Amino acid sequence: MFGFADIIKFLISFFVILPIVTIIHLSGHIFFVTLFGASEKKIVIGSGTKVFSFWNIEIRRYYFWNGACEFKSLRHDNRVTNTFIYLGGALFNLAGICLVHVLISQGILEKSVFWYQFIYFSFYMLFFSLFPMYFSDGSPSDGKAAVLTLKKQHEKNISDDIQFMKMEEQNKPDERFKNDNK
Rank of each mutant, 00 (worst) to 15 (best):
F4C: 00
A5C: 03
A5G: 10
I8E: 11
I8P: 03
I12K: 09
I12M: 13
S13A: 15
F14S: 02
F15L: 15
F15P: 01
P19A: 08
I20L: 15
I24F: 03
H25G: 13
S27V: 02
H29E: 06
F32Q: 06
V33W: 09
V33Y: 03
V33R: 02
L35Q: 06
F36A: 01
G37P: 08
A38D: 05
E40D: 15
K41N: 14
V44F: 10
I45R: 02
S47I: 12
T49H: 12
K50G: 00
V51Q: 08
S53E: 10
F54L: 11
F54G: 00
W55F: 15
W55M: 13
R60H: 14
Y62D: 07
G67N: 04
G67C: 02
A68I: 05
E70I: 04
F71R: 02
K72I: 06
K72T: 14
S73P: 01
T81H: 01
T83C: 10
L91C: 14
L91F: 15
N93T: 12
I97K: 07
C98P: 00
V100Y: 03
I108Q: 01
E110F: 03
K111L: 00
S112N: 09
S112Q: 02
F114H: 11
F118S: 06
I119N: 14
S122V: 03
F123Y: 15
F127R: 07
F128E: 01
S129H: 12
S129Q: 09
Y134C: 05
D137M: 13
G138Q: 10
S139F: 02
S139V: 05
P140D: 02
P140I: 05
D142N: 12
G143H: 00
K144G: 00
T149N: 08
K151W: 10
K152H: 13
E155W: 09
M165W: 03
M165T: 13
K166C: 05
E168C: 04
E168P: 06
K172N: 10
E175F: 10
N179Q: 13
N181M: 12
N181H: 14
